[in-house]
Design a protein around this nucleic acid. Structure first.
Length: 809
DNA sequence: CTAGGGTTAG
């Protein structure tokens, strides 16, 4: 009778559109379309279910049992909506029914909903039992919610279920997954009896949080207390070894695997391949891989990743081919994700595009990880528009996808786009992590705004990122150096507890670009004394320091020591530094000889270096040779044209100046407008040559007049220079009138707008000219203030009439 | 009748 009633009820709704709210505490919400049942979705009975129903009529079984079977069938077949619908229709006063539903929700990854049902269960007076809690804890772990998890823990203590082994194991696992090691350890410590699963939960927990060492110690300890590890233990243990530097441990675990007879377990085998791949041991990975008879898609994917990780990109590609031909398997999303880094490294744009296309055809998209991998790939290949395209199409962007897009912008020099995106995240309260900051900080260094640099430093400090992360600290040092604040850069360096080779390279370069080569050299020596091994970049910094500060002999000595003492072959960057160094001496023949003797193909930068040297030595013939080479490699090299043109102008060769002008127009190159900037009250004040747009222009002009009168003394170089240029001005109009140079307006503005005694910081987008340099020196003397002018290459520290560059730049 | 630990991805 009851059975008939229930069946009747149930079929009466057969065709009615029905909406089931997944959140039992709230009324059904018709807009919640994702899981709503919008039509006669239920019943969708399979044969098994039908048998149950017909059986219930004939056999006089209690009906709820049958319904529960139906409920379980729904969950097993993955249709949670149907299960929830059925659940609402049936009598759910017993714990068991609730357990089934909560289990189903957790299996589907609907953790919030699982917890809601748990609350509702309690609200309706149904007592959760020892079976309920493991599901609920799994949901808490899935949400990564320590808060929710510890609330459940508290309740467990209250109802006295906190001693059950299953529940304790669930608790350990939950705490480890939400990242609270201590709580997990406490539960483990206080257990009266630990079983295999308890130990496994610890081994996997430590592995999950990245504490490989503890994970392995745990694995060893469980053996020593007489618990035989199983495949679960080994999979976690191998996971712990899947990091660089743990290869030896990995091999030990491999031995243990064999001794315990798990080497034929497919998942253990997969973990072994993965471990060897990530430890940089592609040969062992391959060996394990080849022994496996029945390879599944995961096995193949892991091998594809292993090849890519070990820079064996083409084997990575052929592995995918074999997987299709030999393995008779179709690449899946993960295959694609694994393949994309190999495409980026080999510049295989076409292959990546066909992966992208295939993903679309197969309906793999949207897929957040694949999309992020695509953004990363397009970014690495300089296809910013494509990266943006993929990025904007991601509807549920997460931290990794934002980070990938920011990195793509920064790698390609699209700094303002990167900053805009970063601030977008910031203002939209998207959670940021270390990677976000590591990606964005170089952009802050490039926009060279000291006030903004300070702000981002404050943020980083507040989030305690700079104290814990070397990459971040190094970026901060570089940022301050690039923003002109060498003192703070030095302070940040001194404050670092764990300096790595990059930290030292950065501080050496920082002092180098500020013209304090002596200090750079001291840092280098200190670095060696501290037992830090220099690398290629160290020598770029060091040789730059020698060249910028004119330390010719030291430069040669360090250059020669690279190979001899440190086993580093000089690369093209090092030859470039040396060429700058030779250029300083004015020995152009030696410079040219040096290029010819170089074991590497000269780049545009190399010829550009010779060109600058020719300019300094005032040798037009050399300059012509150098620019010819430079322009053949980089026909849009603006600086090259300008330098040459200036040299012709100074020599009065106006026909040649015109020729270059025509060339420049032909190439469609815009001349960079010389402009200087000074920051004041978080605002950037720009000064362009012959500019009258600044609000305080009159005051600036007054200051400039006063200073000029004070600085210009008869027979000094400055005056001579002016007369020389005036003379050429008479012949042909030349925009390079020093009196209107933006640096001078900027200096005047800087003097009146900044705190007395503090350094005046000015930035210039092109190199400072000689007249301005002399002007700045004089001002520093009469005003008794330090002035820092950062031009496009170095920083000039003017103090008491002298410049840190030693008048050579 | 239900429970705990596990392989590939940015």
């Amino acid at each position: 009778m009851v059975a008939t009633l229930l069946t009747h009820n149930y079929f009466s709704n057969f065709n009615a559109p029905r909406i089931v709210s997944l959140n039992p505490c709230e009324p059904p919400n018709p807009n919640q379309s994702q899981y709503a049942v919008s039509g006669p979705r239920f019943p969708k009975l399979n044969q098994l279910q039908l048998t149950h129903f017909s059986a219930s009529k004939t056999l006089t079984e209690p009906c709820n049992i049958t319904l529960i079977d139906a409920l379980r069938s729904c969950i097993d077949s993955g249709s949670i909506e149907d299960a929830l619908y059925l659940f609402e229709e049936m009598n759910h006063s017993d714990t068991f029914t609730w357990n089934i539903v909560i289990k189903g929700l957790v299996q589907k990854g609907l953790f919030d909903e699982a917890i809601s049902y748990f609350h509702r269960m309690e609200f309706e007076g149904v007592r959760p039992d020892k079976f309920t809690y493991p599901f609920v804890l799994k949901a808490c772990a899935g949400l990564l919610s320590f808060k929710e998890g510890s609330k459940v823990h508290a309740k467990l203590i209250k109802v006295g279920l906190d001693l059950d082994v299953y529940i304790c194991n669930s608790l350990i696992s939950m705490y480890m997954k939400v990242g609270c090691l201590e709580s997990g350890e406490n539960v483990f410590e206080e257990m009266s009896a630990r079983d295999l699963v308890s130990w496994n939960a610890m081994v996997s927990g430590y592995q999950l949080v990245g504490d490989s060492l503890s994970s392995l110690v745990c694995l060893r300890e469980m053996v020593s207390v007489g618990i035989r590890p199983d495949s679960f233990s080994f999979i976690s243990g191998l996971g712990a070894c899947s990091v660089e530097g743990f290869g030896r441990n990995g091999k030990e675990v491999h031995c243990q695997v064999i001794r315990n007879g798990f080497e034929m377990d497919p998942r253990v085998e997969t973990s072994l391949i993965d471990m060897y791949g990530k430890c940089g041991n592609a040969i062992y990975a391959e060996r394990v891989f080849n022994m496996i008879v029945d390879k599944n898609i995961v096995t193949w994917n892991v091998m594809v990743a292993g090849y890519a990780y070990n820079a064996r990109f083409y084997e990575s590609f052929s592995c995918v081919k074999k997987m299709q031909d030999v393995g008779k398997l179709t690449p899946d999303v993960i295959t694609m994700i694994n393949l994309l880094p190999a495409c980026a490294q080999t510049g295989a744009l076409l292959m990546a595009k066909s992966i992208h296309a295939s993903a679309i055809r197969k309906g793999f998209l949207p897929h957040i990880v694949l999309e992020t991998a695509l953004v990363d790939f397009y970014g690495r290949c300089g296809k910013l528009k494509l990266a943006e395209h993929v990025f904007t199409q991601i509807n549920q962007k997460n931290l990794a996808s934002w980070n990938a897009m920011i990195a793509a912008y920064v790698q390609n020099g699209w700094y303002s786009e990167a900053l805009e995106l970063f601030l977008d995240m910031w203002y939209n309260s998207v959670k940021l992590d270390v990677i976000t900051f590591a990606s964005i900080l170089p952009a802050y260094a490039e926009i060279t705004s000291l006030s903004e640099g300070r702000q981002i430093h404050a943020v980083v400090t507040k989030l305690r990122l700079s104290s814990s992360n070397v990459i971040i600290s190094n970026s901060i040092i570089y940022l301050y150096a690039k923003c002109g604040d060498l003192r703070t850069a030095g302070r940040c360096f001194d404050g670092m507890v764990c300096k790595d080779v990059v930290s030292w390279n950065t501080i050496i370069m920082a002092y180098a670009i500020h013209g304090f080569g002596r200090v750079s050299v001291q840092f280098f020596q200190e670095m060696i004394e501290n037992g830090i091994k220099p690398n290629k970049s160290t020598f770029v910094s060091l040789l730059s320091a020698c060249s910028i500060s004119g330390m010719v002999d030291e430069g040669w000595e360090y250059f020669n020591s690279m190979k001899r003492d440190y086993g580093i072959n000089p690369g093209i960057e090092h030859f470039g530094c040396m060429l700058d160094l030779i250029g300083r001496t004015g020995n152009l023949d030696l410079a040219k000889h040096f290029i010819e003797e170089m074991p590497l193909v000269p780049t545009a930068r190399i010829w550009g270096s010779l060109l600058s040297a020719s300019r300094k030595a005032n040798d037009i013939e050399f300059a012509e040779v150098a620019s010819k080479h430079a322009l053949s490699l980089e026909h849009d090299n603006t600086g090259c044209y300008i330098l040459l043109s200036n040299m012709y102008a100074e020599a009065g060769r106006w026909a040649d100046v015109e020729k270059i002008k025509t060339l420049v127009i032909q190439e469609g190159i815009a001349k960079t407008m010389g402009c200087s900037t000074v920051e004041k009250d978080y605002k950037v004040h720009r000064f362009v040559d012959q500019d009258g747009s600044n609000a305080q222009v009159n005051m600036i002009n007054d200051v400039m007049d006063i200073i000029t009168k004070m600085t210009v003394k008869d027979e000094d170089v400055y005056a001579r220079r002016i007369t020389k240029l005036r003379r050429t001005d008479l012949t042909r109009k030349k925009p390079n009138v020093p009196g209107n140079h933006s640096v001078r307006s900027a200096i005047s503005f800087g003097l009146i707008s900044t705190k007395l005694g503090s350094p005046v910081l000015i930035r210039k987008n092109v190199r400072i000219c000689e007249a301005c340099h002399i002007f700045a020196k004089r001002v520093s003397k009469i005003s008794k203030r330090e002035m820092v002018v950062g031009d496009s290459k170095v920083f000039h520290h003017f103090e008491d009439g002298n410049c840190s560059c030693g008048d050579y730049w």
